[in-house]
Design a protein around this nucleic acid. Structure first.
Lengths: 356, 356
DNA sequence: CTGTTAGCGCTTTCAA
DNA sequence: TTGAAAGCGCTAACAG
């Protein structure tokens, strides 16, 4: 059945202790090169696979990192995200990105496995059962820091994702939403728009990240000496404002909100970017099909997750807790154009699509 | 430091064996109710958390399920998906859905944790190191069954996702793509369209799933006595076919392909659903913004993952390998309309064939 | 109903 | 440079 270390020892003509020294992966043991080689051959030949449980019991470590996906699979309505209904789709996109980032980093750092906790039920206790050496928590921004607080005193090194200000002792990685908001707004400003509105802040206004995006907008407007407008989160109101000539460009809180803007505008016979320039945030799947190509702020979720793994590994190597804010960057497509180009007839555009 | 079972025993005034009986979760032991309660109190009071490694070593089981996400985080070009470039975004969406489904099922079945292997590096050996009781493999349809074959002889129960015909001994869960293709086509047929084309089959034609979708199309067309057309995978060709009056409706291989269809058509001044009815496949994020609401086939990826967990648990309880094909369902939005409703704007439409 | 006992397979001093 | 021996913390027979 299962090959154990003693059988390898027997085959190689050495003791189990020697086999362990060779195969444990730990360097620094004094083993004769020839002996080591003999052991490795025997192990390979017998198809030896070390028993993790035994090793963990002995060493007290597992080499595994734990992951808590706070929001994943939850079936709560998440219409808050983006201010428009989106099922669980947006979350799933981000969770997929998180997993991708975690996987890449784990592979790179040779972390053998990630332990993903289903979450939902009884949280804290099970995270501390020695299954993992450290914990990554992908927080749900909609839920506040309840889980982090609960884990606050834990002996386990923890790094929080989607979090700017973690409880003391924890590391954190987040995207710099404020910088992203400023980036989007500056882009519009740079295109000659002064009458830039922020679209969002509706039901989702309680979400820290979205407030930071708006803060970035305000900061950029202020810095440019442009008039900060009160946030809009109603299509009809936006249409009126556009008609009154009060807004020529919109920075939407999320790409989904941007899609809602496009829809509201187009129902009123207004087009993007013909009548209004638009910038979104997130670069979700399908962004290139919104308004013929939505200019938006790329949200580095996968990168954030990867940085989280790095941060956790550093903690495991004795470094102290750290905090990191990832800069987002702009993806320029077609939904935002210079103001002078704006008043262009729709028919004209059909015949001569603007070059990228 | 860490509380162990003997300390709980001491505090409760019983032996460690009794504590184990009470706390192991295993029922069927004869323990006095009062004693059990005393033990539980002591454990709670001391903050006892069982050491998983020790338990696993002793019992030989872990209660954990392993997950291999074959495609996740891979940075290979995946332009094949949908026949149009999409970065890793589509995959990530599906991986997010997979994780959501796994999590929900794990929570429901009280699986304490899922072990996710980074994959990529050296595969098989590490999956068999006793870390998990069974393995879920989310196969990459673009890669064939290499990994499954390699794991073919393994002692571990394995269930393959995204797979219709696994190697003998393995369970498998997949979506019924052929049924989905038929569903989409029948919908168009039911709307009065006879000249239905299949869009896809380009570079991605090697992908089994997509071929099955096309098979569903053929099957439905045949059954309806409608003319099966050769697959189109070029926007210009499609436009010509539409202009010649050869096609009034399109079933696109994927939603992304559908988006490409919309784009090609609109560049030629043709609209969806005005000139052409369109049905996609997948219901990706943003599908509601394609063509003002893409009618599409919902791809139950999360459900597939959940079924996979159930299948694996069944295997662990001694049942034999099983195979399951999940039926997709149609999501009706606006991109497909009855032929008579389509605004008649082209000359050729004036002599459209009588409805039957 | 409760306690004693013997390991699970591995790593790690320590002595040879 | 190698080997003998002592557990890591828990569970499962088996006695009592």
């Amino acid at each position: 059945m299962k090959v154990k270390i003693t059988e390898v020892a027997l085959a190689a003509g050495v003791s189990s202790a020697t086999v362990s020294k060779v195969l444990s992966g730990r360097t620094g043991y004094a083993v004769h090169a020839a002996t080591a080689e003999r052991v490795r051959q025997a192990a390979l030949h017998l198809g030896y696979v070390p028993d993790l449980a035994a090793r963990n019991l002995r060493t007290g470590r597992t080499g595994q990192l734990g992951v808590v996906l706070e929001a994943v699979g939850s079936s709560e309505p998440d219409s808050l995200l983006g201010g428009v209904t989106a099922g669980s789709a947006v979350r799933r996109t981000f969770d997929g990105a998180i997993m991708a980032g975690l996987n890449d980093a784990a592979r790179e750092l040779e972390v053998p496995a990630l332990v993903v906790y289903p979450g939902g039920g009884k949280p804290p206790a099970s995270y501390l059962d020695g299954r993992v050496d450290g914990l990554l928590i992908s927080c749900d921004p909609l839920r506040g820091h309840g889980l982090l607080e609960a884990l606050s005193g834990a002996a386990l090194p923890i790094v929080a994702l989607w979090t700017e200000n973690p409880p003391p002792g924890m590391s954190a990685v987040d995207v710099d939403h404020q910088a992203g908001g400023a980036l989007a707004t500056d882009h519009l400003l740079g295109l000659g728009h002064h009458r830039v509105a922020f679209y969002g802040g509706g039901e989702a206004s309680g979400v820290e990240h979205f407030r930071r995006r708006e803060l970035g907008y305000r900061q950029a407007m202020l810095a440019a000496g442009a008039p900060v407008q009160t946030a809009l989160h109603d299509g009809a109101l936006l249409v009126e404002a556009v008609r009154r000539g009060e807004v020529s460009a919109v920075f939407a809180e999320t790409d989904l909100a941007a899609a809602a803007v496009v829809q509201a505008l187009s129902r009123a016979g207004l087009s993007v970017p013909g009548d209004v320039s638009l910038v979104g945030f997130d670069d979700i799947l399908g962004a290139e099909y919104i308004a013929g190509g939505l200019t938006t702020v790329y949200h580095p979720a996968a990168e954030m997750a990867a940085e989280g793994v790095h941060a956790l590994m550093r903690r495991l190597q004795g470094e102290s807790a750290s905090q990191l804010l990832l800069p987002p960057h702009l993806i320029v497509r077609r939904s935002a154009q210079t103001q002078s180009e704006s008043p262009v007839r729709q028919e004209w555009r059909l015949k001569r699509p603007p070059k990228m």
